[in-house]
Design a protein around this nucleic acid. Sequence first.
DNA 1: TACTACGTTTAGTAGTTACTAAACGTTTTA
DNA 2: TAAAACGTTTAGTAACTACTAAACGTAGTA
Lengths: 175, 175
Amino acid sequence: MTKLPQLKKDFIENLSQMSRFWGFPKGMGAIFAVVYLSPAPLALDEIVEQTGMTKGAVSTEVRTLARMGLVHRSSKLGDRKDYYEAETDFYTSIRSLLKERQHSEFDRALRGVRETLEKLESGSVSGNEAEIAFMYERVKALQDFFNAIDSLTNAVIKLESLGLSNVTKILNILK
Amino acid sequence: MTKLPQLKKDFIENLSQMSRFWGFPKGMGAIFAVVYLSPAPLALDEIVEQTGMTKGAVSTEVRTLARMGLVHRSSKLGDRKDYYEAETDFYTSIRSLLKERQHSEFDRALRGVRETLEKLESGSVSGNEAEIAFMYERVKALQDFFNAIDSLTNAVIKLESLGLSNVTKILNILK
DNA sequence: TACTACGTTTAGTAGTTACTAAACGTTTTA
DNA sequence: TAAAACGTTTAGTAACTACTAAACGTAGTA
């Protein structure tokens, strides 16, 4: 006979590990887990209590969670506290995460690759002809790949109304 | 008029940043870039020379690249050196990466969630009825989401022959 | 006014990670 | 046999990251 509080702790631990796996701080996973398991919106101090983290840490982590669209901040009238509740439509979260990616370091690097390609095909590069041709070929292939990925993610972003389960069904048909 | 060697350096720098963005060491990106831009298979020392890293670092990083299927190790008869060349079919690489994921810490955590759910629905948890019901609902929703993701990745893995560009076309039709 | 209840910011810290330098083991060559 | 040419492993390091503790700012309350 497992006790409910223990089960919650296990679950929080699980999401912490997942968080770390995705490259996020494990504290983020813990915070999300706590908020996600709460029926009512939680105040900062309640999160502090349930995670065992300090106010400062929760304050900063919860903000990035909000920026990612995984939790939402709200407030009650005549109550100075901030309250947080979890986004339950994960598909919505995914979309906001993908959108955020657009403005990241990744796309900066991607633009760099594009510029490299442009220089190569504009003939403004000095060096052995064959070497230039080869590099062009390779960089072009890489960019085609990135563009494909980009189309995919953009398609997912635009699917708005379509649930993930539907996408799954479609892909199952493809097999 | 840009010089070819400079352009290569820029490209290497770009892939390094991307590598870091995906949570891999930037050295990994640099190594892949060097190998990818080489028309002929490269020996370890040549990679060392072009990346500026030490032998030890390249030795270990290149091995994980090989494990991920992004580079391939080969050797010439009567030559003691190992040679490395880049995988150019990125779709193949993606599949091997997704396969590797299966055995990771992530799936361990996922199993944990599954167990939590099983305990909740088997009635072997002591505590407030309503709270248990609520937690079950939430954990169930999360797992449904994970299962959807899983189906998607498995679908991608099984697509074997189908190129990424084709998948893109299909998703474009969906819009 | 001082006091309390908040959330934020800052300074410092423990732990981690990606690397370097160098020793090492093994196989080929002289 | 010694020496050279490889790739690997290990010990140590510099930089980074996720955190804690505590000071801080601000707005409401007595």
